[in-house]
Each structure stands twice: as C-alpha cells, then as structure tokens.
Design a protein around this nucleic acid. Structure first.
Lengths: 254, 254
DNA sequence: GCTTGCGGTTGCCGTTGCGTCAACTCCTAC
DNA sequence: GTAGGAGTTGACGCAACGGCAACCGCAAGC
C-alpha cells in the first residue's frame, strides 16, 4: 500500500509543499517515484513523518530531527539541550517584557523621551579610557600579584580585543542595571548567572578567591572612582553589584 | 562635523555592514555621500541611530522602528502590542518547556517510545466522522433551535472547510490535554484562553448562554459517546474540559 | 480532436537581519 | 609603480516553508 503526496498531506495535516520540502532537504524521501515522477510514500515513511511532526511540535529544528532519526544523535541529549534553550529563551523574554513594560509605563506617564528607566546606555563606558596613574600605582602597591597578572593579560590583547572586552563589560553592567530597576533580588538565579559572567570576566585577568572577590565588591562601593563608573550607568548600581557579588562569593567561591 | 561609516560603527558598536543595511532599507540614510561615494553621517544620524539601537534592544523589528521614527506609528501603541507579543511568546515557551521536560522524563525513565505523556495525537479525530443518526435525532429532539442553527452552518461549509475545522477542534483538544497533564488548574488564564477559543468555536454553530454552555460541559462527561471521544485523546480530558468550561461560564458568560 | 480540469512536477522569490565573501575603486604613502 | 587601507555595490546564505509560474500526463466531456 502506497500513497500519493496529496493523500499523505491529508492524512498528516501538513501541506504537500512541506512534504516536498522535507524531500528536498533529505529529511523524508518518498519510498519511490512513479513513472510519471510522482512521489509514492509507504508505511515506513508515514511512521517517520509521524516522528518528525512529534519532534517538530516540541520545537526541534529539522536539522536536529534528522540527526535524531538517522541515529546520529541521542534523543535524550538533544531534548535536554533543547529544554535548556527553551528555559533560557523564556527567561530572556521575561526580562525583556519587564523592560518593555517599564518603558511603556514611563512613556504613558508623560515622559516623551524615557531615559530607559534611569539606565544610561553608554556604547562603551571605557571608550578611550586609560587607567589613571594614581589608581594604577595604588593597585600595584596593594595587590602586586594581581597587578602583575592583570598587566600581562592586558598586554596580550590587541586593541580590537580590548575594545570588544570593554564593550562586553559595559553591556554586562547595563544588564545588571536592568535587573536592579526591575527589582530583581540579587539572589535570583538570573542575577547570579550574570554575576558568574562577571566573575569569569575578572578571571581573565586575575583569579580571586571568595575573600578577594568580596574585597573587589567592597571596592566598587567604597572607592569613589569605581562607584562613579557604576553610577554613570544607573544610580545605586555599585551597591547592587556588590550585593550580588557577595551572594556569589558565599555560594560559589571558597 | 561628520563621520565616516567606520567611525560611526566604532562609536555605536554596530558593524559597518549593519549601517549599510540600514541605509539599504531606508532606515538610516547617511547625511550625504562624498565625491568618492563614501557615506558621511552627521549628528542627526547619530541621534537617530541611538534611537534605533534602543528600540532594537527592546526587540522591535526594524520595520516597526522605522514606522515609529517616521512618526507613522504611535510609540506607546507599538510598545503595548510588542509587550503583549512578548508575554504570549513567553507563555508559549513555558508550556513548551513543560512538555519537553515531561517527554524527557518519560524517555529517561526507560520508555523508549514515549506516547507524549498519555496524550494521543490523532491527526484528525473526526476523519470520516459522520454523526450517527441516533445522536443526531436525539439532539434534534432536545434542542431543536440549536440543531437547526447548527445544521445550516454545517451545510454552508465546504468539505475543505469542514476538514480544517475538525482539525482545529482536534488540535484544541490536544492543547487542552497538554494543560491537563501539566497539572495546570482550569482557572489558569491560559486554560481559560483556550476555553474561550472553544467557546468561539461553538458559537460558529450555536450561541449558548451560561446555562447552555454548562449543559454542554456536563454532556461531555455524562454522554458516553462524547466522553469516549475526549478520552481517546487523553484519559480524564472530558472532566478537565468540563471543569474549564464551568469556570468560563461562571466568569465570562451570563 | 480539442479543451478543460485535476494532480502532480521543478524552480524561484520572499520572509528577517544581517555575516561573509567577491570584485572594484579611490586615495595615500613608500 | 605599487602596496595597503578604507570604502563601494552586488550577491549568496541562514530556517522553514508559502506562494506563484510554467509545465506535464491523464482522464472526461464536447
């Protein structure tokens, strides 16, 4: 028993165009083609199509589905990865919806040019920034090991890399500010994930233990130069960042 | 003071390709071009670019951004619509992640061919379905007005429309089953939204008031033929659907 | 014998927001 | 004279198809 493309389409609920597409990308070739070039599908193909549609409903890409069906990938592993992606995307949308909602509220409150809810978005906070000699000397004196490590790492970067990195730091600060104005507690997994990114960023230059990381956190608030940098992005960000770092140090560092 | 494309790219953090793209689609034409064809950007363009990037970060499409900037659309209205879209998409992902998570759990529990967590997914539950004369006569006798209205609406549909409609009904039942196995309470907005869709579907043939809709709900469970149809999708679906409909009737109908 | 219609075919464009070549041009410095 | 850098336009590619065009084969009806 074989079926024509239109019959399969009616039985499965997809369009014949889709079936041709699946044939075209090698996901579901028909059992054979008649003398007139018409595709003929058998039971094996119907079964395969059923599997395809099942996974498609779960949101897997056709490429992944093909990998699974051709047993070039483990079903469970693919689904786990997909699940993680879904949760991450959901969290992203949640944050985004919050930001849009606040912007909207500001707009309707009459502020014609909302300033992003108190967040400034410098494209690159450190553009043309050279650490002033005074601070540099101070760091060198107080933490000579860290200063030396950091110096080596900095010198190894090209100008381009430096700028990309500065941009990334700025973006991280803005994301943190987002959480802050959204009222997200610093213990929230999303905030801690961001803090983890910050920690990894710091580790590019210097690997702090819990106490050192806490020291850095304190410096952000206590040192007027650091605090000013944070507060240029959003008021209170230095303290928020410090709190997040302290939670991170307590939970993830030793 | 004007800037070259590379300068603007460095200042704003986007690539020169992006700027050319924005020019290409008319979103951000340069202030002018030099004798050598090179684009020159002025302060007005930088300001416009800043606005663009702001809205882009909020997730708006370039088309929407252009509409807003050319004041062919209301900022607040666009943001409100976008906010709604974001929330809907977030909810979709949440449900999807739940389904994927349960499928994954079933898979890891050893069931190599998980049956979608107890949900059957007939492509079209009513394929080739003709209401049996007995039921038909019964409905006609008990609710003559409704039977007549429904008959007229049914006859007005082409075969194609009928099949599409049956498919949609089946899909709705599967979505309901998803909520049921996910343990979502029937009072949940998502479930009520689905019930609203069901209600609108019913209204294509017959417009029930609160009592009638509740009566239909009861029939789903009490009538063995209806219940069997629901339970072919998932066990207990008839009761779940009834509960959802009763909540709906109480809250939205009179 | 000719037309009409159905069911199928291939192939190409459009969708979104750019990344990534390729092939040129212009200007400057050595 | 030539190498290099900064710019240009044009085109393909990405995911998963929808939709259209042009064409083919086969049947029925005139």
């Amino acid at each position: 028993m074989t079926w024509s493309i239109a019959e399969v389409a009616r039985m499965s609920g997809v369009t014949s165009r889709t079936l041709r597409h699946y044939d075209g990308i090698g996901l579901l070739p028909p059992a054979g083609t008649g003398s007139n070039g018409h595709r003929r599908y058998g039971e094996a193909e119907l079964l395969r199509l059923q599997q395809i549609l099942l996974m498609r409903e779960l949101g897997l890409s056709l490429r992944e589905i093909r990998a699974v069906l051709d047993s070039r990938a483990d079903r469970a592993a693919v689904l786990r990865a997909h699940h993680t992606r879904l949760l991450a995307e959901r969290d992203r949308l949640t944050t985004l919806a919050g930001t849009v909602g606040r912007t909207l509220a500001a707009l309707e409150e009459g502020r014609e040019h909302p300033d992003m809810n108190g967040i400034n978005r410098p494209e690159n906070l450190f553009a043309g920034f050279t650490p002033d000699p005074e601070t540099d000397a101070e760091v060198r004196e107080r933490w000579p090991r860290a200063w030396e490590e950091s110096r080596r790492a900095t010198e190894a970067m090209t100008d381009e890399e430096t700028e990309r990195w500065q941009r990334e730091v700025t973006a991280g600060m803005v994301r943190m500010a987002e959480f802050m104005v959204a009222g997200t507690p610093v213990t929230d997994p999303a905030v801690q994930a961001e803090t983890d990114a910050h920690h990894r960023g710091v580790c590019r230059f210097w690997t702090p233990n819990a106490a050192a990381y806490r020291g850095l956190a304190a410096t952000y608030v206590d040192d007027p130069r650091f605090r000013a940098t944070f507060d240029r992005v959003a008021e209170g960000l230095a303290a928020y960042q410090r709190d997040a770092m302290e939670v991170y140090a307590a939970e993830r560092l030793s």
